[in-house]
C-alpha cells in the first residue's frame, strides 16, 4: 500500500527551479532511502513534502490526500514528522522540554517514553540539561526521539549520520530498524553503507529529477549503476 506519493513534483525557490520532476512512491512500512549527490535536491524534496517550500499543487499525496497546498503545521498533524539536516533542536530548552513540545497534549505517554529511554539511554541521563549542551550524537538522538514521541505514520529524516562517530552511527541504525517496525521512514542519506543496511526501497535524485527507482537489494548489487549515479567506486 502506498503511503506517500510524489507525482511530477516541481519546486521553485525564488527564481530558481530546484526540483524539476520528482516522482516516486513510498510504500507503507520499512525504510525508503533517497540517495543522490550533494545539491541534487534531496533536502528540498523533504522540505517540499513538509510544506516548508511550496511544491506544485497536486503533486504530493499522503494516504490518498493531496497535501501539496497545506500549511506545514497541518501536514505535521496528519502524522508526518520531520528531522532536518541541522536537527532543529531547541538549544535553550531542556531535553524534557524539547520532547514535551512534540507531544499532542503536553504530557508523555509513558510507554513511548520508556521506548525512547531504551533506544536512546543518553536522553534519560541528560533529561534536565539544556539541549545546546548535548554532543552532536545526543542532539541527533533527541531529534529522532522528538519525531517518535507521538505515533506517526511517516518520518522524514535528513542525513542523520552526518558528522557522527561510527559507534553512534551504528546505534542510530539499530534505532531506525526498531522504529521502522511500526513507522515508515523516508531517509535521505549520503552514507551509502548505512543506507544500504536499512533501506528496502530506494530512489536516486540528480539535478532535481528522479533518475532511478527500485529496491535497495538490486541497487546495492549493481556497482556500475552506483558509480554512474552516485560516483561511488567499486
Amino acid at each position: 500500500m502506498t503511503l506517500l506519493s510524489l507525482q511530477n513534483m516541481k519546486t521553485q525557490i525564488g527564481q530558481y527551479h530546484v526540483l524539476h520532476d520528482i516522482s516516486f512512491e513510498v510504500p507503507q512500512g520499512g525504510v525508503f532511502v533517497l540517495l543522490g549527490r550533494n545539491g541534487a535536491g534531496k533536502t528540498t524534496t523533504l522540505r517540499s513534502i513538509m510544506g516548508l517550500w511550496q511544491p506544485q499543487p497536486g503533486s504530493v499525496t499522503f494516504k490518498g490526500k493531496d497535501i501539496s497546498t497545506l500549511a506545514t503545521a497541518d501536514i505535521a498533524r496528519l502524522g508526518i514528522a520531520y528531522v532536518p539536516e541541522n536537527m532543529g533542536i531547541f538549544g535553550g530548552l531542556t531535553v524534557e522540554e524539547n520532547l514535551v513540545l512534540a507531544t499532542a497534549k503536553g504530557r508523555f505517554d509513558q510507554t513511548r517514553l520508556r521506548r525512547i529511554y531504551t533506544l536512546f539511554p543518553a536522553l534519560e541521563q541528560f533529561w534536565t540539561k539544556q539541549a545546546w549542551s548535548l554532543s552532536g550524537g545526543q542532539k541527533q538522538m533527541l531529534a529522532v526521539a522528538r519525531a517518535i514521541i507521538e505515533p506517526r505514520d511517516l518520518i522524514l529524516i535528513d542525513e542523520p549520520t552526518k558528522g557522527l562517530a561510527p559507534s553512534i552511527v551504528a546505534a542510530m541504525g539499530e534505532a531506525f530498524r526498531e522504529i521502522a517496525q511500526d513507522t515508515t521512514i523516508l531517509l535521505v542519506e549520503q552514507n551509502f553503507n548505512f543506507a544500504r543496511s536499512l533501506g528496502r526501497d530506494m530512489a536516486v535524485i540528480d539535478d532535481g529529477r528522479v533518475v532511478h527507482r527500485g529496491t535497495m537489494a538490486d541497487f546495492a548489487a549493481d556497482t556500475d549503476l552506483q558509480g554512474q549515479l552516485l560516483g561511488l567506486s567499486a
Binding site: 513538509m50 516548508l52 500549511a71 506545514t72 503545521a73 505535521a76 498533524r77 514528522a81 520531520y82 532536518p84 532543529g88 531547541f90 538549544g91 535553550g92 530548552l93 522540554e97 514535551v100 513540545l101 512534540a102 499532542a104 503536553g106 522528538r146
Partner: peptide, 23 residues
C-alpha cells in the same frame, strides 16, 4: 505550554511549525 512554544519559536520558527503548531 504557550511559553514553551514562544521560547522554541524564538529559536527556530520553522521547526515549531514542523511540530504541528500554527506559528
Amino acid at each position: 505550554r504557550i511559553g514553551l512554544l514562544i521560547r522554541a519559536g524564538v529559536e527556530n520558527r520553522e521547526m515549531v511549525e514542523a511540530l504541528g503548531f500554527k506559528i
